[in-house]
Write a protein that binds this DNA or RNA. Structure first.
Lengths: 214, 214
DNA sequence: GCAAGCATACCGACTGGTTGGTATGTTCCG
DNA sequence: CGGAACATACCAACCAGTCGGTATGCTTGC
């Protein structure tokens, strides 16, 4: 969801190093395939240190989803697209930002919560709930702007809540297709889908299309 | 992607029973979390039997993605939406069908290829490629109808290939959000997103919106 | 017609390594 | 001194994969 390290402070404490290792390894390999030993090695922490901070691997998963929520939430809250006066421009500006973040290999921009929930939604209720909160938290951050855009343009048949969740769904789907892409530009694959989302909003809010890719 | 068993013949040979077990277990738990022993137990096959048919767990993953491609490909090829004279109606009919398939818990309608590729895209190039082929195969099946719809309506700024991939991206994203949903109707969550996709196409192809959910 | 020869399908005990997790320290800071 | 933050050593369960073996059926030569 967020490029490596550009907005997260370098991890100093052992606990934060484990969480950063979790982001890196789980993005690339998934939750189940990432062992506690591997997390310890990557974080430069011993087994004892790991289980001092996290009661279990599952607890690490929950903590990681929460860590991810806080990091991404803070990043988007501080982003400049909020300054547009027009709510439609704020919504499109959010998607512009999401597109701009799509660079490099899939493991550098994909979503930790989306990856974890896909594997763990049945096996761990706690991880599922934490990932749901992360994804819906991202959605909620756009809901007020969408409500204002709907009110202003008179778009019918949609709700702000439904649209805000749909933005996250398209983003998650874009990540899946980017990961499936074996070519050399997984980010371009992901961008393609966010541009379709943008066009959907332009049509819905009666805006002139702004550019023409894919 | 496809409801359980409604179109797949009951597995008779040991090999097919293993593949069916793979569909069931990997949909619910993911690839890494599903052990060979578990697959054997579910399929009623011994370890020896498993490795007689599949050289490795990875080979099972590849075979499973191919099996999935063939099953879903045959199902959609035989579906009645192809009979519409209007290409736009064919496209919307495909989405209608996908919506109609969204019933029950997420593990009964989600996509094996999408689940596997999310975990394995870096760990196994063979599985990644097989999953990509499965997803892009589904996309390709709609491409001619989309090309005709674009030609007929004069929709600009989109390509049939790009739109066909986008359909699959939205479907995959809908599955992720459905899995994240802890409520009692994961299928309704998924449907919501396909209805937004439908509205996108209606706007793009200048159709009257047909109904109003979410 | 039938048996020798061989391939396919399947079995289940076994192996070496890995897993998540624990028990018992040690170190260091207030 | 006491407790938080680690480190070391270890464990039982589980992992993917191996191996020697059997049952069955098909094919081919006589």
């Amino acid at each position: 969801m967020i490029p490596n390290q550009t907005f997260r402070p370098p991890a100093s404490t052992a606990r934060d190093r484990v969480l950063e290792a979790g982001v890196k390894l789980i993005r690339a390999q998934g939750y189940s395939a990432t062992s506690v030993d591997e997390l310890c090695r990557e974080a430069g922490v011993t087994k004892g240190g790991f289980f001092h901070h996290f009661a279990s691997k599952e607890a690490l998963g929950v903590a990681l989803a929460n860590y991810w929520s806080r990091s991404t939430g803070a990043f988007f809250a501080a982003a400049p697209f909020h300054h547009h006066a027009d709510p439609v421009e704020r919504v499109l500006g959010y998607i512009d930002l999401r597109i701009a973040l799509l660079v490099g290999p899939a493991e550098s921009f994909s979503c930790v919560a989306g990856t974890m929930v896909q594997e763990q939604f049945r096996s761990s209720a706690a991880i599922r709930a934490a990932c749901e909160a992360s994804i819906l938290g991202n959605a909620a951050a756009l809901e007020a702007d969408l409500a204002a855009a709907i009110a202003q343009t008179g778009a019918t048949g949609v709700t702000a809540g439904g649209l805000s969740r749909h933005v996250q769904a398209v983003i998650q789907g874009a990540f899946v297709l980017a990961k499936a892409n074996g070519g050399d530009d997984q980010a371009a694959t992901a961008r393609e889908h966010l541009q379709h989302l943008q066009r959907y909003f332009e049509l819905l809010f009666h805006q002139e299309p702004r550019e023409n890719p894919s």
